[in-house]
Computed example of a mutant assay.
Amino acid sequence: METSTQTKTSAAAGANALAEAWESLQQTKPGIRIREAARALGASEAELLATKIGPQVVRLQGPWPELLRRFTTLGRVMSLTRNDACILEHKGLFQEIDIIDAGPRSMATVIGPIESRVFFHAWHVAFAATEEKTDRVLKSIQVFDRSGEAITKIYLQEKSDEEAYARLIEDFRSPDQSPEQPVSVYAAEVLQGPENEAAFLQEWSELKDTHEFFGMLRRHKVDRYHALEVARGKYTYQLNAKATPQVILEQAAAQKLPIMIFAGNRGNLQIHQGKVRTIRLLERGHNGPEPWLNVLDPDFNMHLRMDLVDTAWVVKKNTTEGFVTSVELFNKQRNLVAQFFGLRKPGIPEKLEWRSIVENLPAL
């Protein structure tokens, strides 16, 4: 029977082997990003980062709501949230944070220059990391779920408060500073609904607010993609997925029309609210050219990997102010990649300019 000491020795050996493999990969592919390196090595980002624990990397612990609140002390930072296909980056302040304590479903809303919806049930471990680049030093707080996937990363900027950053690290330093980071795979959630399609569509017709949509899906035990299929022709229809995102961004930029972009993962949903200006389609990647659609504005960047966008849907939800129209992008696994809305405030109908853009998007 393996003893506790043997287990620790085995884990340390595994971490050392992973660190060596990562270093070898970086020599073979200089500049490879940690997410790509983790995939190539059959590991996770969190496992790779843990191998650097020492002067450059410190493991942090919760309480996670208190850690989030401390982001307000850092001053101007860059907040990055992503999934496999879409990355949102905002520069600004963590201004207003409201913690909604609901036990296992505890969450927070972040409002201001950086806006997000935070789901603490997925926050598992965090690290403070210092990365030395050829032209700069990057300091960050990085949060991961239990599978080792990144939830969000907060990077210091030129005018960030470095002293507040140092205090945060000391206050949230974990007693565990070992180079191993255990991870576990999330079981796939299987939803078979809706059992009664007519009742589901009837409830859809009676929505009063877009925020009721997720609760409706849960009540009917239906996943989002299947819900759109059930409502096809009534509240949803498909678009040309390869053309739609670029048309939306270019039309919004040309008309100076404020829009909303949502993208995230199981632990964080980051939101852009405002105009977009500089739209570029570029190819990059260490494993061959990858087509990325980009918004490259001073305080906001979006990077959308177009070859991973499989379907695009127009979705209409009833509200007390009339229909609210979104365009939703999904990957081949039918996971939500990103959503686009016209910017609107509660109590105000959707802008006709946004509806016109959506109505003229290329159909499937």
Score class of each variant (00 low, 15 high):
S140Q: 09
S140E: 14
I141P: 02
Q142G: 06
V143S: 09
F144D: 10
F144G: 08
R146Q: 10
S147L: 03
S147M: 00
S147G: 00
A150R: 13
I151F: 08
T152Q: 15
I154H: 07
I154S: 04
Q157I: 06
Q157M: 14
E158D: 14
S160F: 04
E162L: 13
E163N: 15
A164N: 01
Y165F: 12
A166Y: 13
R167Y: 09
I169E: 02
D171G: 00
R173M: 12
S174V: 03
D176Q: 03
P179N: 02
P179G: 09
P179D: 00
E180A: 14
E180V: 11
Q181G: 06
P182T: 06
P182F: 04
P182D: 04
V183H: 04
S184K: 06
V185P: 06
Y186V: 02
Y186W: 09
A187K: 15
A188N: 10
A188T: 15
A188I: 12
L191C: 05
G193R: 02
P194E: 05
E195A: 12
N196H: 14
E197M: 11
E197F: 14
A198N: 15
A198K: 15
A199F: 12
A199E: 15
A199I: 09
Q202I: 04
E203F: 11
S205R: 11
L207H: 03
L207W: 00
L207Y: 00
T210Y: 06
T210P: 01
E212A: 09
E212F: 04
F213Y: 14
M216V: 04
M216Q: 11
L217Y: 00
R218F: 12
R219E: 13
R219W: 06
R219I: 09
K221G: 07
V222E: 01
V222G: 01
Y225C: 02
Y225S: 01
H226P: 07
H226E: 12
R232C: 08
G233H: 01
Y237R: 07
Q238N: 07
Q238K: 13
L239S: 07
N240M: 13
A241Y: 12
T244L: 00
T244A: 12
Q246L: 08
V247W: 11
V247I: 08
E250T: 05
E250M: 06
Q251K: 05
A252M: 03
A254L: 02
A254C: 03
K256N: 14
I259D: 08
